[in-house]
Amino acid sequence: MPNDTVSVTLRRASDVAYARQAAMQTMAAIGASSIKKTKFVTAVSEIARNAVLYGRGGVITFEIVGSGPRRSVVAECMDRGPGIADVALALTEGYSTGSGLGLGLSGAKRLVDRFEIASSALTGTTVTMECFAR
């Protein structure tokens, strides 16, 4: 691959499906196992949908890092929304300010190998997730 980075703009709900496709393709590119692919793509779907629903849209970027068998995909989802006032509370299972089940954030965190949230009212929310090939 000449360029190991791919970005998907998140404006509406249908863009979440494009983010899933990009996530699936990058995981396939590093030869990820089917369970790893499913876990990562599901996590991406949750975070991308949150960016559309609560973050006024944004962009998600996928990058392949490392080499050989320890390659991984790093996804960075950035929005320019209002931020998450209390990240710990938002990560509580069952907490939702919308019509969801409040399982997306906590679930995504469990599904990936590394999960970070940086959020403030000024910058919006950035979620970084990393997933190894197996």
Partner: peptide, 14 residues
């Protein structure tokens, strides 16, 4: 349902 999907649903708490 694929095994990977079943595992993921459990991890999501669905």
């Amino acid at each position: 349902m694929r095994p990977a999907v079943a595992m993921t649903l459990v991890e999501l708490g669905m």
